[in-house]
Design a protein around this nucleic acid. Structure first.
Length: 478
DNA sequence: TGAAATGTTGGGGCG
DNA sequence: ACGCCCCAACATTTC
């Protein structure tokens, strides 16, 4: 009887999972395994919000495995030791997994593949985390793309060839002879101080929750996605990012949903597919430029001396910058583990271009607080905003938090929800309370500097400041 | 997936 | 009727 280990990592689903499918097709029994080894991800080990999500996603995976005659075997790392022990205990002849593309994991997986092969164990990695493999798309010169539009155009013929998502298996043979597992709780993924009630309210980690989120999105929001995706006050976005990050949903499933009859030709489906394209782009870039997690892609930015100011950084983190749209976003993040993408750009622009603080400070905070924290997306996003990344916003592109708020939160609902101390201000002043006359502030019960902070930085001057520093960088002066 | 400064146009008030 | 000015609306340039 042949036995195969399915090593689950961030493909926490049974549907459209090539590693699982191949294991089932090639062996008589499978052993589903998760190995907890956060330190193998180097300086970018999962943050607190990610760990919370992971706990519940693993719990869900175990539950759906149990419904199919199996269970999830959980072990502590190091990964290689755990896998070798499991091979020994079960007599497995193969280990299957879905490929990931973060630099530290690529290296680790390569080593594990070698070690397994040396011992005569088949080590098989499978695609599925991306629509297109990073090595499959190159420019005419054979280089990786650095600009999104031509990149996405080059992907197009490959997308046309995508097979439809595979079905989940009905039964997993081998469940009667599984090796021991540690309790999920022993992994210590959940916070000791229970700050996670806001997360639990908003999210349903796991494959079932992912499928429900996709169905809701396809039915309710995809049609108007093109316009509504920029509105933080509406449920206009897909909110699939954490599900995609943990592989509770394959990008191919999301892609297929947007292509469903009646939607495939809509503008909304087109822009949503394009967003999936950005996800591909960020992963491809990280694969080709692994150092960009910690260093700018544009090396000229190495010479920049960013501001260090603990008090201001803390004001930004906690949503006390005095800019309502920024504070609303930072509080939404803190409370729900997520922030609307439009608002991510606004808060990132303020941090890097008005406060002139290092994009890594922002990247690290997002990393710890986002349930969808993803090294490729986070790196691309922050370098894009700071202007040092691929297809980046030019250094002079600085968001004005008041104008952005007026444009994308026209009804002021987003501010009133997340910055309740301003809720009674009239529409005219709620995006810029520092311009309100005394009597209006009094009537609304707002005391600038006390009940709500004054702006940490003056936008015009700080913008010009930043421009000057970027300008010096461009011309080579310092 | 920028904002602000600057330039251009055209309608309307008015002497 | 005409020229002049104002200014909103839109376009272009610059950072």
């Amino acid at each position: 009887m042949s036995i195969a280990i399915v090593w689950f990592r961030r493909d926490l689903r049974l549907t459209d999972n090539a590693a699982l499918g191949e294991a089932l097709a090639s062996a008589d029994a499978v052993v589903p395994v998760y190995v907890h080894a956060p330190d193998e991800e180097g300086p970018w080990a999962p943050g607190a919000a990610s760990r919370w999500w992971l706990h519940y996603s693993l719990k869900e995976l175990d539950k759906s495995l149990a419904g199919r005659g199996s269970r999830l075997v959980v072990r502590h790392g190091p990964s290689l030791d755990a896998l070798l022990a499991l091979v020994e205990e079960t007599g497995a002849g193969a280990v299957h997994w879905s490929r990931l593309y973060e630099p530290a994991l690529l290296e680790r997986d390569k080593r594990i593949e070698r070690e397994l092969a040396d011992r005569g164990i088949q080590a098989a990695s499978h695609g599925g985390h991306l629509l297109v493999e990073p090595w499959a798309v190159k420019t005419g010169q054979g280089d990786p793309y650095r600009v999104f539009t031509p990149f996405w155009r080059a992907c197009s013929p490959l997308l046309g060839e995508l097979a439809p998502p595979a079905r989940a298996p009905r039964r997993l043979p081998g469940g009667d002879a599984l090796p021991r597992s540690v309790e999920l709780g022993e992994l210590g993924l959940l916070p000791t101080i229970r700050w996670d009630s806001g997360l639990a309210e908003k999210w349903s980690p796991g494959e079932t929750g992912a499928a429900a989120a996709l169905a809701r999105f396809a039915q309710e929001s995809l049609g108007a996605y093109d316009a509504d995706r920029n509105r933080p006050d509406l449920a206009g976005t897909s909110r699939l990012s954490p599900h995609l990050h943990f592989g509770e949903l394959s990008p191919r499933q999301a892609f297929a949903a947007a292509r469903a009859p009646g939607l495939g030709d809509s503008k909304g489906a087109e822009s949503f597919t394009r967003e999936l394209g950005w996800r591909e782009f960020s992963h491809h870039l990280l694969f080709h430029f692994p150092h960009t997690t910690d260093a700018p892609l544009d090396a000229r930015f190495d010479r920049l001396e960013w501001q260090r100011d603990t008090a201001r950084l803390e004001a930004w983190r906690r949503g006390r910058t005095g800019y309502p749209i920024v504070d609303a976003g930072m509080r939404e993040l803190w409370h729900t583990g997520w922030m609307h993408n439009r608002v991510r750009m606004i808060v990132a622009s303020l941090l890097t271009k008005n406060l002139f603080m290092h994009w890594l400070e922002g990247a690290r905070w997002f990393w710890d607080t986002l349930v969808d924290a993803d090294l490729a997306n986070n790196t691309l996003g922050w370098q894009w905003t700071a202007g040092c990344g691929a297809d980046a916003a030019p250094y002079f592109r600085v968001f004005n938090p008041v104008l952005q708020a007026e444009k994308f939160d026209p009804a002021r609902d987003y501010i009133r929800r997340w910055v309740p101390e301003l809720a009674r201000l009239p529409d005219k002043y709620i995006h810029c309370p520092w311009t309100a006359p005394r009597e209006i502030l009094d009537a609304a019960g707002v005391e600038p500097g006390r009940s709500y902070p004054l702006p940490v930085v003056e936008p015009r001057g700080s913008r010009n400041d930043a421009l000057a520093r970027f300008e010096a960088l461009k011309t080579g002066r310092k």
